[in-house]
Design a protein around this nucleic acid. Structure first.
Length: 240
DNA sequence: GCTCATGTTCCCCT
DNA sequence: CAGGGGAACATGAG
Protein backbone atom coordinates (compact mmCIF):
# COMPACT_ATOMS: atom_id res chain seq x y z
CA UNK A 1 0.00 0.00 0.00
CA UNK A 2 1.10 3.54 -0.71
CA UNK A 3 1.14 4.36 3.00
CA UNK A 4 3.88 1.93 4.07
CA UNK A 5 6.54 3.67 6.12
CA UNK A 6 4.68 6.98 6.03
CA UNK A 7 3.29 9.11 8.83
CA UNK A 8 -0.34 10.23 8.92
CA UNK A 9 -0.84 13.97 8.89
CA UNK A 10 -4.60 14.13 8.84
CA UNK A 11 -7.59 11.84 8.54
CA UNK A 12 -11.13 12.47 7.45
CA UNK A 13 -13.75 9.81 7.83
CA UNK A 14 -17.46 9.53 7.00
CA UNK A 15 -19.78 8.74 9.82
CA UNK A 16 -20.53 4.98 9.84
CA UNK A 17 -17.65 3.83 7.65
CA UNK A 18 -15.59 3.22 10.77
CA UNK A 19 -17.50 0.24 12.09
CA UNK A 20 -16.25 0.14 15.64
CA UNK A 21 -16.11 3.72 16.79
CA UNK A 22 -16.87 7.35 16.11
CA UNK A 23 -15.10 9.12 13.22
CA UNK A 24 -13.20 11.26 15.73
CA UNK A 25 -11.52 8.19 17.17
CA UNK A 26 -9.71 7.64 13.85
CA UNK A 27 -7.96 10.99 14.00
CA UNK A 28 -7.34 10.58 17.72
CA UNK A 29 -5.71 7.20 17.13
CA UNK A 30 -3.91 7.72 13.84
CA UNK A 31 -2.63 11.28 13.46
CA UNK A 32 1.12 10.93 13.79
CA UNK A 33 1.02 7.15 13.37
CA UNK A 34 3.40 5.48 10.91
CA UNK A 35 2.10 2.65 8.73
CA UNK A 36 3.97 -0.61 8.52
CA UNK A 37 3.75 -2.99 5.58
CA UNK A 38 0.14 -4.22 5.40
CA UNK A 39 -0.86 -7.86 5.49
CA UNK A 40 -3.73 -9.45 3.57
CA UNK A 41 -5.72 -12.34 4.97
CA UNK A 42 -8.42 -13.46 2.59
CA UNK A 43 -10.50 -10.41 1.79
CA UNK A 44 -9.17 -8.43 4.75
CA UNK A 45 -6.30 -5.97 4.77
CA UNK A 46 -4.58 -5.39 8.09
CA UNK A 47 -2.61 -2.16 8.16
CA UNK A 48 -0.51 -2.17 11.30
CA UNK A 49 0.94 1.10 12.58
CA UNK A 50 2.99 2.04 15.63
CA UNK A 51 -0.44 2.80 17.14
CA UNK A 52 -3.64 0.76 16.63
CA UNK A 53 -4.00 -1.05 13.32
CA UNK A 54 -6.45 0.02 10.63
CA UNK A 55 -8.34 -2.92 9.12
CA UNK A 56 -10.14 -2.78 5.78
CA UNK A 57 -12.76 -5.01 4.22
CA UNK A 58 -13.62 -3.84 0.71
CA UNK A 59 -17.06 -5.42 0.37
CA UNK A 60 -18.14 -5.41 -3.27
CA UNK A 61 -17.23 -1.88 -4.33
CA UNK A 62 -14.45 -0.73 -2.00
CA UNK A 63 -11.01 0.23 -3.33
CA UNK A 64 -8.04 2.44 -2.64
CA UNK A 65 -7.31 5.51 -4.72
CA UNK A 66 -3.97 7.29 -4.47
CA UNK A 67 -4.21 11.04 -5.10
CA UNK A 68 -1.12 10.93 -7.30
CA UNK A 69 -2.90 8.61 -9.73
CA UNK A 70 -6.34 10.20 -9.53
CA UNK A 71 -6.25 13.69 -7.99
CA UNK A 72 -9.98 14.39 -8.03
CA UNK A 73 -11.79 13.56 -4.78
CA UNK A 74 -15.05 11.69 -5.19
CA UNK A 75 -18.32 11.67 -3.23
CA UNK A 76 -17.76 7.99 -2.47
CA UNK A 77 -14.45 8.64 -0.74
CA UNK A 78 -15.33 7.40 2.72
CA UNK A 79 -11.97 7.86 4.43
CA UNK A 80 -8.94 9.95 3.48
CA UNK A 81 -5.51 9.50 4.99
CA UNK A 82 -3.21 12.43 4.29
CA UNK A 83 0.56 11.96 4.06
CA UNK A 84 3.32 14.41 3.15
CA UNK A 85 3.34 13.21 -0.48
CA UNK A 86 -0.35 12.62 -1.13
CA UNK A 87 -3.63 11.17 0.03
CA UNK A 88 -4.83 7.60 0.22
CA UNK A 89 -8.60 7.46 -0.19
CA UNK A 90 -10.88 4.56 0.68
CA UNK A 91 -13.58 4.81 -1.99
CA UNK A 92 -16.69 2.64 -1.66
CA UNK A 93 -19.95 3.26 -3.44
CA UNK A 94 -22.16 0.72 -1.69
CA UNK A 95 -20.53 0.77 1.74
CA UNK A 96 -20.76 -2.99 2.21
CA UNK A 97 -17.11 -2.67 3.07
CA UNK A 98 -15.83 -0.91 6.13
CA UNK A 99 -12.92 0.08 8.30
CA UNK A 100 -12.04 -0.98 11.83
CA UNK A 101 -9.53 0.27 14.38
CA UNK A 102 -7.89 -2.48 16.36
CA UNK A 103 -5.39 -2.85 19.14
CA UNK A 104 -2.95 -5.73 18.77
CA UNK A 105 -5.21 -8.18 20.64
CA UNK A 106 -8.44 -7.16 18.91
CA UNK A 107 -7.59 -8.09 15.32
CA UNK A 108 -8.71 -11.70 15.68
CA UNK A 109 -12.13 -10.74 17.03
CA UNK A 110 -12.75 -8.32 14.16
CA UNK A 111 -11.81 -10.78 11.42
CA UNK A 112 -13.84 -13.54 13.04
CA UNK A 113 -13.26 -17.24 12.39
CA UNK A 114 -11.37 -17.27 9.08
CA UNK A 115 -9.88 -20.28 7.36
CA UNK A 116 -6.34 -20.17 5.99
CA UNK A 117 -5.72 -17.76 3.14
CA UNK A 118 -6.48 -19.55 -0.11
CA UNK A 119 -3.15 -18.43 -1.61
CA UNK A 120 -1.10 -19.59 1.38
CA UNK A 121 -2.69 -22.96 2.03
CA UNK A 122 -0.92 -26.16 0.98
CA UNK A 123 -2.60 -28.55 -1.42
CA UNK A 124 -3.00 -31.21 1.29
CA UNK A 125 -4.67 -28.76 3.65
CA UNK A 126 -6.90 -27.44 0.85
CA UNK A 127 -8.08 -30.96 0.02
CA UNK A 128 -8.53 -31.92 3.67
CA UNK A 129 -10.76 -28.91 4.31
CA UNK A 130 -12.95 -29.41 1.26
CA UNK A 131 -13.42 -33.16 1.14
CA UNK A 132 -15.41 -33.33 4.36
CA UNK A 133 -17.88 -30.55 3.49
CA UNK A 134 -21.44 -31.68 2.97
CA UNK A 135 -22.75 -29.05 0.57
CA UNK A 136 -21.80 -28.07 -2.96
CA UNK A 137 -18.21 -27.37 -3.90
CA UNK A 138 -19.21 -23.79 -4.68
CA UNK A 139 -20.65 -23.25 -1.19
CA UNK A 140 -17.53 -24.74 0.39
CA UNK A 141 -15.16 -22.55 -1.62
CA UNK A 142 -17.22 -19.43 -0.88
CA UNK A 143 -17.23 -20.12 2.87
CA UNK A 144 -14.56 -17.89 4.44
CA UNK A 145 -14.33 -20.21 7.45
CA UNK A 146 -13.16 -23.00 5.15
CA UNK A 147 -10.74 -20.92 3.05
CA UNK A 148 -10.34 -17.16 3.12
CA UNK A 149 -10.19 -15.11 -0.03
CA UNK A 150 -12.39 -16.67 -2.70
CA UNK A 151 -15.59 -14.94 -3.86
CA UNK A 152 -18.35 -15.41 -6.40
CA UNK A 153 -16.28 -14.56 -9.48
CA UNK A 154 -13.08 -16.35 -8.43
CA UNK A 155 -15.02 -19.48 -7.49
CA UNK A 156 -16.93 -19.63 -10.78
CA UNK A 157 -13.71 -18.99 -12.68
CA UNK A 158 -11.72 -21.62 -10.77
CA UNK A 159 -14.41 -24.29 -11.15
CA UNK A 160 -14.68 -23.56 -14.86
CA UNK A 161 -10.90 -23.82 -15.27
CA UNK A 162 -10.90 -27.07 -13.30
CA UNK A 163 -13.93 -28.35 -15.25
CA UNK A 164 -16.01 -29.09 -12.13
CA UNK A 165 -19.73 -28.21 -12.03
CA UNK A 166 -20.48 -25.79 -9.18
CA UNK A 167 -23.38 -27.80 -7.71
CA UNK A 168 -21.40 -31.00 -7.37
CA UNK A 169 -21.15 -32.14 -3.74
CA UNK A 170 -17.71 -31.36 -2.29
CA UNK A 171 -17.58 -34.77 -0.61
CA UNK A 172 -18.11 -36.55 -3.94
CA UNK A 173 -14.97 -35.12 -5.54
CA UNK A 174 -11.87 -37.24 -6.07
CA UNK A 175 -8.41 -36.19 -4.91
CA UNK A 176 -7.55 -35.57 -8.53
CA UNK A 177 -10.53 -33.24 -8.99
CA UNK A 178 -9.78 -31.36 -5.77
CA UNK A 179 -6.19 -31.03 -6.87
CA UNK A 180 -7.34 -29.51 -10.17
CA UNK A 181 -9.50 -27.03 -8.23
CA UNK A 182 -6.54 -26.17 -6.01
CA UNK A 183 -4.33 -25.39 -9.01
CA UNK A 184 -7.09 -23.36 -10.68
CA UNK A 185 -7.69 -21.32 -7.51
CA UNK A 186 -3.99 -20.54 -7.19
CA UNK A 187 -3.85 -19.31 -10.76
CA UNK A 188 -7.08 -17.31 -10.59
CA UNK A 189 -6.19 -15.64 -7.29
CA UNK A 190 -2.64 -14.87 -8.37
CA UNK A 191 -3.76 -13.28 -11.64
CA UNK A 192 -6.60 -11.44 -9.91
CA UNK A 193 -4.48 -9.93 -7.15
CA UNK A 194 -1.94 -8.84 -9.73
CA UNK A 195 -4.68 -7.05 -11.70
CA UNK A 196 -6.57 -5.76 -8.67
CA UNK A 197 -9.74 -7.45 -9.96
CA UNK A 198 -10.75 -10.70 -11.58
CA UNK A 199 -9.51 -10.22 -15.15
CA UNK A 200 -12.25 -10.40 -17.79
CA UNK A 201 -9.93 -12.11 -20.29
CA UNK A 202 -11.48 -13.54 -23.43
CA UNK A 203 -10.03 -16.92 -22.50
CA UNK A 204 -11.68 -16.83 -19.06
CA UNK A 205 -15.25 -17.50 -17.97
CA UNK A 206 -15.19 -14.09 -16.28
CA UNK A 207 -14.74 -12.47 -19.67
CA UNK A 208 -17.90 -14.15 -20.92
CA UNK A 209 -20.24 -13.71 -17.98
CA UNK A 210 -21.06 -10.07 -18.57
CA UNK A 211 -21.44 -10.26 -22.32
CA UNK A 212 -24.88 -10.52 -23.88
CA UNK A 213 -23.77 -13.59 -25.86
CA UNK A 214 -22.65 -15.79 -22.99
CA UNK A 215 -20.71 -18.65 -24.54
CA UNK A 216 -18.06 -20.89 -23.10
CA UNK A 217 -14.63 -19.61 -24.19
CA UNK A 218 -13.48 -23.25 -24.53
CA UNK A 219 -16.26 -25.05 -26.37
CA UNK A 220 -18.54 -22.14 -27.38
CA UNK A 221 -21.72 -23.75 -26.09
CA UNK A 222 -24.15 -21.48 -24.24
CA UNK A 223 -23.33 -20.94 -20.56
CA UNK A 224 -25.72 -22.03 -17.82
CA UNK A 225 -26.89 -19.46 -15.33
CA UNK A 226 -28.53 -20.19 -11.97
CA UNK A 227 -28.42 -19.25 -8.31
CA UNK A 228 -26.05 -21.56 -6.46
CA UNK A 229 -25.27 -20.99 -2.81
CA UNK A 230 -27.20 -17.74 -2.96
CA UNK A 231 -25.21 -16.18 -5.79
CA UNK A 232 -25.60 -15.82 -9.55
CA UNK A 233 -23.49 -18.59 -11.01
CA UNK A 234 -22.29 -19.25 -14.54
CA UNK A 235 -20.89 -22.51 -15.81
CA UNK A 236 -20.58 -24.62 -18.93
CA UNK A 237 -22.62 -27.81 -18.69
CA UNK A 238 -20.60 -29.30 -21.51
CA UNK A 239 -17.06 -28.84 -20.13
CA UNK A 240 -17.89 -28.87 -16.45
C1' DG B 1 -39.88 1.60 -13.12
C1' DC B 2 -37.35 -2.79 -12.83
C1' DT B 3 -33.34 -5.94 -12.22
C1' DC B 4 -28.88 -6.86 -10.97
C1' DA B 5 -24.27 -6.19 -8.73
C1' DT B 6 -16.60 -8.80 -7.11
C1' DG B 7 -19.87 -9.55 0.25
C1' DT B 8 -21.41 -10.68 4.91
C1' DT B 9 -24.73 -11.70 8.30
C1' DC B 10 -28.91 -13.04 10.36
C1' DC B 11 -33.18 -15.56 10.56
C1' DC B 12 -35.94 -19.49 9.37
C1' DC B 13 -36.32 -24.09 7.85
C1' DT B 14 -34.96 -28.95 6.71
C1' DC C 1 -24.53 -28.88 13.90
C1' DA C 2 -24.52 -28.24 8.61
C1' DG C 3 -26.53 -26.02 4.75
C1' DG C 4 -29.91 -23.86 1.66
C1' DG C 5 -33.15 -19.91 0.80
C1' DG C 6 -34.22 -15.30 1.35
C1' DA C 7 -33.82 -10.77 3.22
C1' DA C 8 -31.26 -6.91 4.67
C1' DC C 9 -27.68 -3.54 4.15
C1' DA C 10 -26.49 1.19 0.49
C1' DT C 11 -26.14 2.97 -3.89
C1' DG C 12 -26.01 3.06 -8.25
C1' DA C 13 -25.79 1.24 -13.45
C1' DG C 14 -28.09 -0.43 -17.41
Amino acid sequence: MRASGKRVRRVTCDRNILRNGAPESVSRSLIGATFEKPKRWGKWLICATDRPALIFHFGMTGRFVWSGDDPEPHPHDRMTLEFSDGELRYRDQRKFGGVWLAGAHEVGDILGPLGPDALEVTEDEFIARLERRRGSIKAALMNQKVLAGLGNLTVDESLWQARIPPRKKASSLSKRELSAIYRACQKVLRDSSKEGLVPAKRTWLTGARNRSDRRCPRCHSGLERATVSGRTTFWCSRCQ
